[in-house]
Design a protein around this nucleic acid. Structure first.
Length: 224
DNA sequence: CCATTAACTGACT
DNA sequence: AGTCAGTTAATGG
């Protein structure tokens, strides 16, 4: 069995879709190894949809001052690309570790999805969830002060990279201060100070790659 | 006052 | 050699 097919079967969005269909899809897909620091796509690349199989990819755009604003750290299983119909989102996708991506043209992607009602529904749910998450993120970035922006960010990252319960959220992957800062539009030094302050208050504890965030303590300190 | 940039430093890989 | 985090000094809104 080829690796693309194996991979499709283990993607949430394709789970339970008959193997025959997946075989057709995988035969249409291209694939590519992407080295660390290599761009997976640039704003000019409008015509492709990517599935991240392994490694990590950073989605970002450059603000008016040319500063990098990180929109997302994608983990294996992510679907990405400039899916909008006509205009570019001016986004870049850069591998932050060696990565492997599967590639479809947009036409192929929509062709495949539109032929299968079950798949259509899943893709729609996937993007509606993404939209809802994006709305929360925008709202937080636009109106919250820094501590609350950071709290929102950790919640979001926990859903994608860790786990969340009613007491704690945990992020399993390694996020540098630099990266976290670029997600909130603050400097690296400011992020360092914030994290250390929260650590002093025991709201954040770190062991290795895991960041734990104590929601109860956070609320105690910062809610009314 | 608060956050930013720039620069230097030590720890780590 | 390169990355990361902690610190300080100067600057600006």
């Amino acid at each position: 069995m080829n690796t693309k097919l194996w991979y499709l079967k283990h993607l949430d969005i394709f789970s339970g879709i008959p193997e025959k269909k997946l075989a057709v899809i995988s035969s249409l897909m291209g694939s590519r190894n992407v080295g660390k620091r290599e761009l997976v796509f640039q704003p000019e690349d409008l015509n492709k949809v990517y599935l991240l199989k392994s490694g990590s990819v950073e989605l970002y755009h450059l603000n008016s001052e040319g500063k990098k604003v990180i929109l997302d750290q994608l983990e294996p299983g992510s679907i990405f690309g400039d899916l909008a119909i006509s205009e570019s989102t001016e986004n870049f996708a850069e591998a932050t570790s060696d990565a492997f991506v599967c590639i479809l043209t947009k036409d192929q992607f929509f062709e495949i999805v539109s032929k299968d009602p079950e798949l259509s529904t899943r893709v729609m749910k996937f993007f509606l969830n993404k939209l809802s998450e994006t709305e929360r993120t925008i709202s937080s970035l636009a109106t919250d002060n820094l501590v609350f922006k950071f709290s929102s960010l950790l919640h979001r990252l926990a859903k994608n990279h860790g786990e969340e319960n009613e007491i704690k959220i945990e992020i399993k992957e390694k996020f540098t201060h630099e990266t976290l800062a670029a997600m909130l539009g603050v400097s690296r030094q400011t992020m360092t100070k914030l994290i250390n302050a929260l650590e002093k208050q025991k709201i954040i504890t770190r062991s290795g790659k895991i960041i734990s965030f104590d929601k109860v303590k956070f609320d105690d300190h910062y809610l009314s």
